[in-house]
Simulated assay, not measured.
Amino acid sequence: MAGEIESIHTTHAAAPGGHYTQAVAHQGVLYVSGQLPVRADGSHSVDQPFEVQACIALDNLMAILSAAGRRPSDLLKVTVYVAGIEHWPAFDRIYARYLGEHRPARAVVPVPALHHGYLIEIEALAGSERTS
């Protein structure tokens, strides 16, 4: 594989709970691992409403983007897994608040269940690192 693979880690997002890293950068593309709504301090939010869980997962994504020198406007593709498609409208509203006018490609995938009983998981691809 040509080029270096750089692991990205920030203490401002949840630490990985398995054999993976928060994100990797390779040839100008940032690949962000699935982010559950686990707080940066490691505390769980599985008992919280969907809207709270969505904000925590998006906060993790934003922290990882920042640690990698990216901004929300660098997002190219976002994949969202939701346990229950009835959460789609609430997610769409919250997502729009986080991204403003930027509209990357996106898929919202309904799933029967997520790890630990969470209601949302978000993974993403972002473009080139900012130099300023």
Score class of each variant (00 low, 15 high):
A63K: 04
P49D: 11
H9L: 12
G100Y: 10
R103V: 06
L36R: 09
M1T: 13
D74N: 14
I122E: 01
Q22M: 07
H102E: 08
N60H: 07
A54E: 02
A57P: 02
P112S: 12
A15S: 13
G42I: 10
A113G: 05
E123L: 13
G17M: 10
Y118V: 00
E121V: 01
L119W: 05
D47K: 13
G69Q: 05
Y118A: 01
I64L: 09
M1E: 13
E86P: 00
R97Y: 12
A96T: 13
Q53S: 03
A63C: 06
P112I: 02
G84R: 09
G28H: 07
E4V: 15
A40M: 06
G3D: 13
Y20E: 08
G127T: 03
L58Y: 04
I56P: 00
S33D: 05
A90E: 07
S73Y: 10
G117Q: 06
L76P: 01
A63L: 08
E129F: 10
E123Y: 07
D92M: 13
I122H: 03
R106Q: 14
S33L: 07
S132A: 13
I64E: 04
G127L: 09
K77Y: 15
S132T: 12
M1N: 11
R130T: 06
Y98E: 07
T10Y: 09
L119I: 02
A107F: 13
A96L: 10
I122D: 01
T79G: 03
Q27Y: 10
T131N: 12
R97H: 13
P89L: 08
V52N: 08
H102A: 08
E129Q: 15
R39Q: 14
R103K: 15
I56S: 02
W88L: 12
D74F: 03
E101K: 15
D92P: 01
C55F: 05
Y95L: 08
V80G: 00
I85V: 10
W88Y: 15
L75I: 08
A23Y: 04
L65M: 05
A54R: 02
I8W: 08
I64V: 14
Y118F: 14
F50W: 08
F50T: 00
M62D: 07
E121N: 14
P16D: 10
G34Y: 11
H9T: 11
E4C: 11
E101D: 14
R130F: 09
A105L: 13
I8F: 10
R70F: 04
L76W: 12
E101L: 14
A13S: 12
R106L: 10
Y20A: 05
Q27I: 08
A83K: 09
F91T: 00
V32Y: 08
I64Y: 05
L65A: 03
A124C: 06
H26Y: 12
V38S: 00
R130H: 15
R130D: 14
A124K: 05
V82C: 03
S73K: 11
V80N: 01
D41R: 06
W88G: 00
G127C: 08
Y95C: 04
A57Y: 04
V29M: 12
I5D: 03
A107C: 09
S43T: 15
S132V: 11
G28S: 09
G3A: 13
P16Y: 12
D74R: 06
D41K: 08
A40F: 05
G28K: 07
A126F: 06
P112K: 10
V109I: 14
I56N: 02
L61R: 03
L114K: 01
M1S: 14
V108Y: 11
V32L: 14
